[in-house]
Amino acid sequence: MAVNNGGTPFILTTVEQMVRWGQKNSIWPLTMGLACCAIEMMSLVTARFDSARFGAEVFRASPRQADLMIVSGRVCHKMVPVIKQLYEQMPEPKWVMSMGSCACSGGVFNNYAVVQGVDNVLPVDIYVPGCPPTPEQVLEAILRLRDGIAAGDPKAGLPFVQAASIKAARAPMTARSVEAARAPMTARSTTQAGGASRG
């Protein structure tokens, strides 16, 4: 809230809001490419799409410096312990974007090798469907994530332990992957808290 009482203008805010403002304007994604979507994720930072406009261009190779994990592609069983560990190494607060049909629901690969949705493994904040999604779609997801962060979504950036307990309470796998596939861009952050703050 900007106030001008006749003298020097000043801004009143809470520490929390200021922190969120900072967080939303400097989302640093983790350099973690999995499959096809990783190439589109790389396109995200290039001149045409330029995610730097939204402060999300600084891809960090170390999970300790990253806020956002973009799960860009199919997650295979052998990769599960790896992404779990990477997620645990990321400092709070942290967000997970499930990019592409495979990460959202297993996509076309309904088979033995592919985890049927990364939400079986990590708490996902925002889903981006598509095979692969265009960089514009990913930008839209980043914008929605920013709204969610600004609105103080309590679910964005759950600690891993809590995520595991949520997972236990969830519906069986098939129902969940259908749900994930049907709900485009369904993010907990936007549906529950961030939706109202948009625009």
Binding site: H77, K78, V80, P81, N110, Y112, A113, V115
Partner: peptide, 30 residues
């Protein structure tokens, strides 16, 4: 495949979906 995987997926009698629920003791379980 992970070292502790059971079965050989490209065999015709191996179900396409595989075991789905892996042994919880495996580090690949989720």
């Amino acid at each position: 495949l992970p070292d502790d995987w059971e079965g050989f997926p490209l065999r015709r009698d191996y179900p396409v979906e595989g075991p789905r629920v892996l042994d919880p003791a495996s580090k690949y379980a989720h």
